[in-house]
Amino acid sequence: DEFHFHWNGRDIRVRGDSEELRRLIEAIKRGELSEEEIERAIEILER
């Protein structure tokens, strides 16, 4: 699976399928994380 979302003017695409990944992306979409937490998560996910 590939998750695709927009954040902070960026087009983010992440491959993978796990419950943890889904929860993280939902939290990002709901605005539950700080900008710094989101940046760090995206860096890890894009590897």
Rank of each mutant, 00 (worst) to 15 (best):
L33H: 03
S34Y: 03
I38L: 09
K29S: 11
I28C: 02
K29A: 09
W7F: 07
R23L: 07
D11Y: 10
E2T: 09
W7E: 00
H4A: 07
R30Y: 11
E32S: 13
I44K: 09
R40T: 11
W7K: 01
D11E: 11
D17K: 07
R22F: 13
N8Q: 11
F5I: 06
S18V: 09
E20S: 09
E19T: 10
E32H: 11
L45T: 01
A41P: 00
E20A: 11
G9F: 01
A27C: 04
L45K: 00
E32L: 11
R40K: 14
H6F: 08
R22A: 11
L24S: 01
N8Y: 02
E32P: 02
E26C: 04
I42P: 00
L45I: 12
F5K: 00
E43Y: 06
H4N: 09
E37R: 02
I44W: 13
I25T: 05
I42F: 04
E46C: 02
S34E: 06
D1Y: 11
S34G: 07
L45D: 01
E39G: 08
F5V: 03
I28K: 01
R15A: 13
R40F: 09
R15T: 15
E32F: 09
E43S: 07
E43C: 07
F3G: 03
I12H: 04
A41Y: 07
F5C: 02
I12M: 02
E37H: 04
I12W: 14
E46I: 13
E43A: 08
H4S: 11
R47C: 13
E2C: 08
I42N: 01
A41V: 11
G16W: 05
R40E: 12
R15D: 15
D17H: 09
E35T: 11
H4K: 08
D11C: 06
E20D: 13
F3H: 05
R23F: 13
R10F: 03
V14Y: 15
I25A: 06
R15I: 13
E26Q: 14
E43Q: 08
R15N: 15
G16Y: 06
S18D: 10
A27F: 08
E20M: 09
H6A: 05
D11A: 06
I38A: 04
E36R: 09
R23H: 11
L45E: 01
E46M: 13
E43M: 07
I38C: 02
R13S: 15
E35W: 08
L33S: 03
G16C: 03
E43W: 05
E37Q: 10
E39A: 06
A41H: 05
G9Y: 01
E26M: 11
R22S: 09
E32M: 09
L33T: 03
E39I: 07
I42A: 02
L33V: 05
I44A: 08
E35I: 10
E26L: 14
G31H: 09
I12T: 00
D17I: 04
E39C: 02
F5H: 01
D1G: 12
I25D: 08
S18Y: 06
R10Y: 04
S18G: 09
W7D: 00
R13D: 13
I38R: 02
R40C: 05
E32T: 14
R22M: 14
D17F: 06
D1C: 06
N8I: 02
R15L: 12
D11K: 06
E19W: 07
F3D: 04
R30L: 12
E46F: 06
E43L: 07
G9N: 04
R13P: 11
V14E: 01
R13A: 14
H4T: 14
G31E: 07
I25C: 02
E2S: 08
D1I: 12
G31M: 06
H4I: 15
I38F: 05
I38P: 00
E20Q: 11
E20F: 11
R47S: 15
E37S: 04
I12P: 00
L33A: 03
H6P: 02
R15C: 08
I44V: 10
D17N: 13
I12N: 00
A27P: 00
W7G: 00
D11F: 10
E35A: 10
E2H: 12
I44S: 08
E19N: 09
E26K: 10
I25S: 04
R13V: 15
G16Q: 07
R23W: 12
I42H: 02
F5Q: 00
S34V: 05
E43F: 04
F3M: 08
E39H: 08
R13N: 15
D1E: 15
E46V: 08
I28N: 01
E35P: 14
E32G: 11
E19H: 10
W7N: 01
S34R: 07
A27Y: 09
A41C: 01
I44P: 01
E26H: 11
E46K: 03
E36P: 10
E43K: 07
R23V: 13
W7M: 03
R13G: 06
S34W: 02
E2G: 09
R10V: 05
R15E: 14
R30Q: 14
E43T: 05
R40G: 07
D1R: 03
